[in-house]
């Protein structure tokens, strides 16, 4: 049984956006803080630290997860993806990101990386969602700027385009 002590940091290794990484964390360090401070991934946005707003949502083994409700050590051996995983390595944005831009689905953009992670996971599970299903999925996020209209349009359009592609 692996055991980590509270006095001092222990090594944590996982696959981050496709690359193996190792860092050091105290057991209580939240994955949000670990990704931001130890891994330098400032796209992890912290909005509430109690799992409601969804700004910090990442994908853990492909499924959406609240990074603020996950301890960094729990990521050991798992696959963690952030919004950086969406665009092509050349920097070309994904269809989902482009649709968000087209439909003005973001304003301040603080909630956006989390919503993109949920939406990308959602579209892999549900290829042809209804508007109601998209809204149901989005209800796991709070956005205070947009009223969600652009997001709903963007996600539905991506689903349609992927089907016809």
């Amino acid at each position: 049984m692996s055991q980590l002590n509270n006095d001092g940091r222990s090594s944590v290794s996982f696959i981050l956006n496709g690359n193996p990484v190792t860092g050091y964390a105290e057991p209580r360090m939240l994955l949000t803080d670990f990704l931001r401070e130890e891994m330098g991934l400032t796209e992890i946005h912290v909005g509430c630290e109690h799992g409601v707003c969804g700004a910090c949502t990442i994908r853990m083994d492909g499924l959406p997860a609240r990074a603020c409700l996950t301890f960094a050590i729990q990521a050991e051996g798992h696959r963690i993806d952030t919004v950086q995983s969406l665009a092509q390595p050349s920097g070309v944005l994904s269809d989902l990101q482009l649709a968000f831009r087209k439909h003005h689905a973001l304003q301040c953009g603080y909630c956006t990386p989390g919503i993109l992670m949920s939406s990308s996971a959602f579209l892999e599970i549900n290829h042809d969602p209804s508007e109601e299903e998209v809204r149901d999925m989005l209800s796991g996020h709070l956005c205070r700027c947009t009223g969600y209209v652009g997001m709903v349009r963007a996600i539905l359009e991506v689903a349609r385009n992927r089907i016809s592609a």
């Binding site: 049984m1 692996s2 055991q3 980590l4 105290e26 057991p27 209580r28 630290e49």
Partner: peptide, 21 residues
């Protein structure tokens, strides 16, 4: 809003878990 310190245990099995408890 950061948690208190604790020790983290990751038992590999139910048996290890109940031993822990």
């Amino acid at each position: 809003m950061k948690p208190h310190s604790f020790e983290y245990l990751r038992p590999a099995s139910i048996e290890e878990t109940v031993a822990c408890l």
